[in-house]
Design a protein around this nucleic acid. Structure first.
Length: 508
DNA sequence: TTCCGACAGTGGGGTCGCAAT
DNA sequence: ATTGCGACCCCACTATCGGAA
């Protein structure tokens, strides 16, 4: 199959707004792709590369070579070249990699070049990723989408699942099993604004409340004396977290898959800032020294496999029993089972007082349904707010083209002026985007680089955020974590906005 | 007919490792 | 030594579609 066939389908999918229409276009193509190329086609059309990353980003694609006029490149050829680029990028020379990128793009028409550039940049933007592709694979193969989804949970990679479905149908899908040593797609949580709201979502039944630790999600696999550890995106980090391997090897079972969180704790048990945990887990050099300085702790909260028995389909309460039989209390995430709102709120106050992030509320009956947010797990975190001044705004991309979107936020400096604390584009409705674009252009001030529009500091906006973190980037040395717009405050003047001192107090 | 769950899109700050400057 | 880039860790929120109620 030619690359251009895939590009044409991608363009048709982009033009179609109805989800079922997108599925139809994708399924039609999957119906005529050969078995060797199914994996590649599914990968490209769900917005990823079979190689995952190849070390080529938007910057490397700034000056593409002259395009060809006739499309002749096959999927197999393009895939092989990308594999070579990945291999070269892994062993050094930027120049060699650049030559291969040029060779690849020189063999493509401008239409194909544009597609591949977006694919490499991770910005396909055709309105279809895994969710839509699952339906397309189901339609093209004749298998129920539930079987496709289930196989994806266990295998963690849709192109492999899709290729199996297209060649072997539902039988092939049902042959996928949890395999120790290969990561499972992790179960994700939705969110609620308060503990009471989370309990209500759970339907008034007793629920489990678990401490939410602000570290790195880990999935630990043990087979005999071999332990492997994976992140939420299924990347392996075994070498970076030796503490975790040792902890798992100390357990009485040797055929295990556990779900948990690693976090750097201070000697008094309070958590380090998230940056410290993230830095520790990301560092690959001199891990032995780093673990002396910043040891990691692990807390497990779920068991997917214990003593060679798969537990994913069991209700959460039964997985908990298996977990408690296998893992000593010191390695378990603190939890409380209750249906009582007052008790739940007291537990929430406990976790916040201990310096942790919040709670995850879990229904006792839900199976381990990977990849779907909001089903059985709901996170609750405390929310801070500040009234800040809009200092500038940036023009948006994609569906926000032509709208001023990303706000630069400033706190008032009591000595005069404003100190920038970060940016946000979150929480804006289309109506608000339209309003602020018009309003900002009235108060635009000073030169623009064509991207950022500086504003007279006149508008006050109420911002919600999760916390204040140290920042090397901003002049005040601090930045807001996960800032989002709640509403504009036309009732407030800029000289009534919150001050940098208020923000600094929140960081301590 | 209305409601609501799932999905895609739009980007945020911080950090590491690597190659080039 | 510093800088630019790619990748990935954490993530909130809105709009939309289409099946469920």
């Amino acid at each position: 199959m030619l690359l251009i066939d895939v590009v044409r389908v991608s363009e048709a999918v982009t033009r179609t707004s109805a989800r079922l229409g997108k599925v139809g276009h994708l399924a039609e193509l999957l119906g005529r792709v050969g078995p060797d190329e199914a994996r590649i086609a599914i990968s490209y059309l769900s917005g990823e590369l079979p190689q995952r990353q190849v070390g080529v980003g938007w910057r490397s694609l700034q000056d593409p070579p002259a395009p060809k006029l006739v499309a002749t490149a096959t999927l197999t050829e393009v895939d092989a070249l990308l594999s070579r680029i990945k291999a070269v990028a892994g062993q050094g020379s930027q120049a060699a990699r650049k030559d291969l990128v040029t060779e690849l793009f020189a063999g493509l028409t401008s239409q194909e070049q544009a597609f591949l550039a977006r694919l490499l940049g991770g910005e396909l933007r055709q309105g279809a990723l895994d969710g839509v592709m699952i339906e397309a694979v189901a339609k093209a193969s004749g298998a129920p989408s539930a079987d496709v989804r289930r196989a994806l949970t266990l295998r963690g990679w849709l192109p492999a699942v899709g290729a199996a479905a297209l060649s072997g149908g539902v039988e092939a899908l049902r042959a996928f099993r949890l395999e120790v040593g290969r990561a499972v797609a992790p179960m994700l949580a939705g969110s609620a604004p308060s503990v009471a709201a989370a309990l209500e979502k759970a339907g008034g039944q007793p629920v489990a409340l678990e401490w939410k630790l602000d570290g790195i999600r880990v999935q630990a696999h043990r087979s005999g004396d071999v332990v492997r550890v994976f992140t939420r995106t299924l990347d392996e980090i075994t070498a970076q977290v030796p503490e975790l391997a040792e902890a798992v090897l100390g357990l009485p079972e040797d055929d295990l898959v556990l779900d948990g969180e690693v976090i750097a704790l201070q000697p008094d048990g309070r958590p380090h800032p998230f940056q410290v945990s993230a830095s520790r887990v990301a560092s690959k050099l001199d891990v032995a020294r780093l673990r002396e300085e910043t040891p990691l702790s692990v807390f497990f909260f779920d068991a997917l496999r214990v003593a060679a028995a798969d537990l994913l389909d069991l209700p959460y309460s039964e997985r908990q029993e298996a977990l408690a039989r296998t893992v000593p209390p010191g390695l378990l995430t603190p939890r409380l089972v209750t249906g009582d709102v007052a008790k739940a709120e007291a537990f929430f106050a406990d976790v916040v007082r201990a310096g942790h992030e919040g709670l995850v509320v879990k229904t006792l009956t839900s199976p381990y349904a990977a990849g779907r947010r909001g089903a059985g797990w709901i996170k609750v975190k405390p929310r801070h707010t500040l009234d800040l001044v809009v200092l500038a705004a940036e023009w948006g991309h994609g569906r926000r083209e032509g709208k001023l979107s990303n706000l630069h936020l400033g706190a008032r400096d009591p000595d005069g002026g404003y100190v920038m604390l970060g940016k946000t584009f979150k929480g804006l409705t289309d109506e608000l985007l339209a309003w602020q674009t018009e309003r900002f252009l009235q108060i635009a001030d000073g030169p623009t680089d064509g991207w950022t529009v500086r504003l007279r500091p006149e508008l006050v906006v109420e911002i919600a955020f999760d916390g204040v973190q140290r920042s090397p980037r901003y002049p005040g040395g601090m930045a807001l974590r996960f800032a989002r717009v709640l509403r504009y405050r036309p009732d407030k003047r800029p000289d009534e906005a919150d001050t940098v001192d208020t923000v600094r107090a929140l960081m301590l």
